[in-house]
């Protein structure tokens, strides 16, 4: 049994870090912000942490905190211009942001060692740490969804015109969601760096951007469980089906297309909704309309 655990421990760690990233993506999508920038903030957090530890001998915890702060600051700065955009334009702008960060990490060799990446990062973030962080974040986000903030986000996401007609301050809430997502992604980046020994620019490129999106699309963007389910499924699928390892991207692509076309609310959210409806049907006999 323990052997089983040790074999899959690194997979588990991988799932946990990705779950954090998925939750960062979930937060923005829940509020109706079409941001694809989580990978960029993760890159900032990861590199900040890695550089501080390896080049400046900062204590790891402080370095991770710094990485989180960098992610938060960057998203705070971006939030202002981004709030004026909608839909597709937010997507493209955040995509450009990810590319800019990628360019910077690839070319600013004096700081980031370019394409070689940074090695020798101490493995500070163990499974227990990661699990702890994920649990805390999940609790936070579940709480967020239960009260006024979650309610407002849902209205904005579903129908912005209604939100505006009810007096909800859309830019304020969307800015907040974006900054929160930046913080979570920055933290995810810092934790990724300290659980992977080495990082390279391509770890945080288009591939990660798509993965973050895919996890939330797969699982669902209206509840935290969606992000978690998505992370578990997306990361473990290639492992469980070694046969498909080569075709991982094809599978990811097919999954993405099938889910968005046939199960647009994602696996977890659809399930939750179905269960709720089934419970209602057994509970009451609806009045005659």
């Amino acid at each position: 049994m323990m052997n089983f655990f040790y074999t899959y421990q690194s997979l588990f760690d991988h799932i946990l870090v990705n779950a954090l990233l998925a939750m960062s993506q979930y937060v923005v999508l829940r509020a109706g912000v079409f941001s694809l920038g989580s990978a960029g903030f993760a890159a900032l957090g990861a590199y900040c942490t890695a550089i501080l530890i390896t080049a400046q001998a900062w204590p790891p915890v402080a370095a991770i905190a710094a990485g989180t702060v960098l992610g938060t600051t960057a998203s705070a700065l971006l939030a202002l211009p981004l709030a004026r955009l909608r839909g597709v334009f937010q997507a493209v702008a955040t995509l450009a942001f990810v590319q800019i960060v990628l360019s910077a990490t690839q070319n600013w060799e004096s700081l980031t060692h370019g394409a070689l990446g940074i090695n020798g990062i101490p493995h500070v973030a163990g499974t227990a740490t990661l699990l702890g962080v994920v649990v805390v974040v999940v609790l936070l986000l579940v709480t967020m969804g239960r009260f006024g903030l979650g309610r407002a986000m849902d209205v904005i996401r579903e129908d912005e015109m209604v939100a505006v007609s009810l007096g909800i301050s859309v830019p304020y809430i969307q800015r907040f969601a974006f900054i929160l997502s930046g913080a979570l992604a920055g933290m995810a980046g810092g934790l990724h760096a300290t659980s992977s020994y080495a990082i390279t620019p391509n770890d945080y490129g288009f591939g990660l951007l798509v993965a973050a999106l895919a996890m939330v699309v797969l699982g669902g963007r209206t509840s935290v469980w969606g992000a978690l389910v998505g992370a578990v499924v997306l990361i473990s699928l290639p492992e469980l089906f070694r046969v498909f390892a080569d075709y991982r991207n094809v599978v990811q692509g097919i999954l993405l297309m099938t889910v968005i076309i046939y199960l647009p609310r994602g696996v977890a959210d659809t399930l939750i909704s179905m269960l709720r409806d089934r419970r209602l049907r057994h509970e009451v006999v609806p009045e005659k309309p």
């Binding site: 709480t143 309610r151 849902d154 209604v162 009810l166």
Partner: peptide
């Protein structure tokens, strides 16, 4: 223009927004 996936109660609840006094952080942290 309703939120089709939300419950009746939640839809009505959204109308009370302008009377909410509690700040964003209090809502976030529960």
């Amino acid at each position: 223009r309703l939120l089709p996936d939300a419950s009746v109660l939640d839809n009505v609840l959204s109308g009370f927004h302008r009377h909410e006094r509690v700040g964003l952080w209090a809502n976030l942290l529960g």
